[in-house]
Simulated scan of single mutants.
Amino acid sequence: MMLEVKDLCVSYGAIKAVRGISFYVDEGEIITLIGANGAGKTTTLNSISNIIKKQSGSIFFNGNDITAVHPDKIVRQNLIQVPEGRRIFANLTVLENLELGAYLRKDKDGIERDMERVFGFFPRLKERIRQNAGTLSGGEQQMLAMGRALMAQPKLLLLDEPSMGLAPILVDEIFEIIRRINADGTTILLVEQNAFKALSIADRAYVLETGTVTKSGKASDLIADDSVKSAYLGG
């Protein structure tokens, strides 16, 4: 397996945000974590990237224990996160944001190829290459955040709420691009409030409630599950 999370626990003071969850991601999959606000989804991703401190548990990536590895060294292993809220560099151009995604790389030809690959997924970024990122629409900023991550050549891409704040037509576009990125060879772990969309493109899914995994299985099975339907799919 590519990623294995074992008995992960994370607390914020007295609040237990994640309570001993375990799950795995195999190479080539799209795996989604779904659940209500406060279920522990973003905390889980931030724990994998070691942005926040874990209370206990272990995380393995491609067989290596990365539980206590510094975030920049996790990036060097090609495990890349697109954070909630995009976190683009608003005062830099689209091109400069994308170049920063490749800051660890020295292969100039490879960087140029990947830049064209990103523009293949996101043609609008090429149209706006000299614009400051802060002048982009919300959907374009999400595309830029994903494009910047792709410039780091992720083996595993962590996506945190990619559809947040987007118009429905843009949500459809973003999810189609996620599917294409996966088909092009990138494994994806997706956290997403839009459970229907997430389950529609995922291979498998885990349902989180108050920091614990309450259900897991094939996404196609969970999308047909009555309890999942009533809790997350509007009926």
Rank of each mutant, 00 (worst) to 15 (best):
E4T: 12
Y12S: 04
G13L: 00
G13M: 10
I15V: 15
K16V: 08
I21E: 11
I30E: 03
I31E: 00
N37K: 10
N37D: 04
A39S: 14
T44I: 11
N46P: 05
N46R: 15
I48T: 07
S49I: 12
I52Q: 10
I52R: 03
K53A: 01
Q55T: 15
G57E: 13
S58V: 07
I59Y: 05
I59N: 07
F60L: 08
F60Q: 02
F61H: 05
I66K: 04
D72G: 06
K73M: 10
V75W: 07
Q77V: 02
L79F: 00
I80W: 02
V82F: 04
G85S: 12
R86V: 06
I88G: 07
N91K: 10
L92R: 13
T93N: 09
V94R: 02
A102C: 05
Y103G: 00
Y103E: 05
Y103H: 14
Y103K: 03
D107V: 08
K108E: 14
D109P: 00
G110T: 06
E112R: 14
R113C: 00
M115Y: 09
E116Y: 00
R117H: 01
F119R: 06
P123C: 09
R128W: 01
R130K: 15
G134S: 03
G134V: 09
S137G: 03
E140F: 04
E140N: 09
Q141G: 06
Q142I: 02
Q142C: 08
L144N: 01
L144F: 05
M146K: 04
M151Q: 11
A152L: 06
Q153V: 04
L156Y: 06
L158N: 12
D160N: 10
S163R: 13
S163M: 13
M164A: 15
M164Y: 06
L166R: 10
I169Y: 12
I169F: 07
E173N: 08
I174Q: 03
F175H: 03
E176W: 09
I177E: 12
A183L: 11
D184A: 15
A195M: 12
A195E: 11
A198C: 05
S200V: 06
A205I: 08
Y206E: 12
E209V: 14
T212I: 12
T214D: 13
K215W: 06
K218D: 09
S220T: 13
S220W: 06
A224R: 14
D225T: 09
V228Q: 13
K229Q: 14
S230D: 13
G235Q: 11
